[in-house]
Amino acid sequence: MSGPRHIIMRRSSGGIGTRSKNRAVQVEQAAGECPAVKRRPTKKALKVAYESSQNEVVCQDPQEDIKQPKWEPKNWREQLANIREMRREKGAPVDVMGAEKCCDRTAPPEVMRYQVLLSLMLSSQTKDQVTSAAMSRLKEHGLTVDSILNTDDAILGSLIYPVGFWKSKVKYIKQTTEILKQQYSSDIPDNLADLVKLPGIGPKMAHLIMDIAWNNVSGIGVDTHVHRISNRLRWVPKETKTPEETRINLENWLPRELWSEMNWLLVGFGQQICLPVSPRCAACLNKDVCPAARLSKDHRKRPLPGPAVE
């Protein structure tokens, strides 16, 4: 005859015996009447501390991958020190005729900033000597927002000729100047997002404008010189095809306090030593640590094939 199972426990002078108590629990479990048994809480996995290359302790879950060190090129500090030494005399065209030298520092701040913007617009695909001469003619004519808006396109073209793509630049200058007049009270934007919206202004120009005109380092100004030299020195993990791609790669590893220096430093180096064609490798202090240099039998350095240059 089936029915509920009865539990019989004997009393003793000392209460329920240990053996009887265990037996009672077993019977209750068999009858499905035993309450949930409390389990011991599992210990939480401890985080493991690793020491980084900067002597900082990084706590990390043992199940996660160990953080990999940030990529940086081999010998870059030595290469940079050598380039600084070669640029110590500051005798390259960029040193005396670059955008920073073309503006009138005695003019009102908004006029000075407008001149910085125009000098960089003119500098695209143009040698510094040609840009500097065009800026001199413009300043003599009157280089303010109002004076440029009141200048006939044909006259403006004659003032900036023979800068590269001068006809297109006449159009861009007029369009940009009108925007500055209407939207920025004859000043220039103080942020990268608005600068790159202006006709004729690309990322390289915008970063340089932010640095020179606003004293705000927003990124590295990468032109063809910086692009070429970064690839020759292998300052990028793999060969890059455009200056903008080079900029992104450089900013991923180069310390931010060096960003402002890079354009001026490498442009001058590219104008004097690391030329686009027939670079002067024999005179370069990096000849023994430059991946793009090869020593021929007559002790002249020849660069490896690299990306397209100007």
Rank of each mutant, 00 (worst) to 15 (best):
V58A: 05
C59T: 06
C59M: 09
Q60N: 12
Q63K: 15
E64P: 04
I66F: 14
I66K: 15
P69A: 11
P69F: 12
K70N: 12
W71L: 01
P73R: 13
P73V: 09
N75S: 08
N75T: 01
W76K: 03
E78W: 01
L80Y: 15
A81W: 02
I83H: 03
I83S: 03
R84T: 02
R84V: 00
R87I: 02
R87Q: 07
R88D: 07
E89R: 09
K90N: 08
A92E: 08
A92Q: 06
P93R: 08
M97P: 09
C102K: 04
R105I: 10
T106Y: 08
T106I: 02
T106P: 02
A107C: 09
P108A: 14
P109Y: 04
V111L: 03
Y114R: 05
V116R: 02
L117H: 14
L117E: 15
S119I: 13
S119W: 10
L120T: 12
L120W: 07
L120F: 10
L122V: 07
L122I: 07
Q125I: 12
K127T: 07
D128S: 13
V130A: 02
T131I: 04
T131H: 08
T131V: 11
S132E: 10
M135E: 08
R137W: 00
L138V: 13
L143Q: 01
T144G: 04
V145E: 10
D146R: 06
L149H: 01
L149D: 08
N150Y: 02
D153S: 15
D153N: 11
I155H: 10
L156K: 01
S158C: 07
L159C: 03
Y161T: 14
P162T: 11
V163R: 01
V163L: 08
F165E: 09
W166R: 04
K167Q: 14
S168Q: 11
S168N: 15
K169G: 06
K171L: 07
T176A: 15
T176C: 15
E178Y: 14
E178H: 14
I179E: 07
L180E: 10
L180I: 10
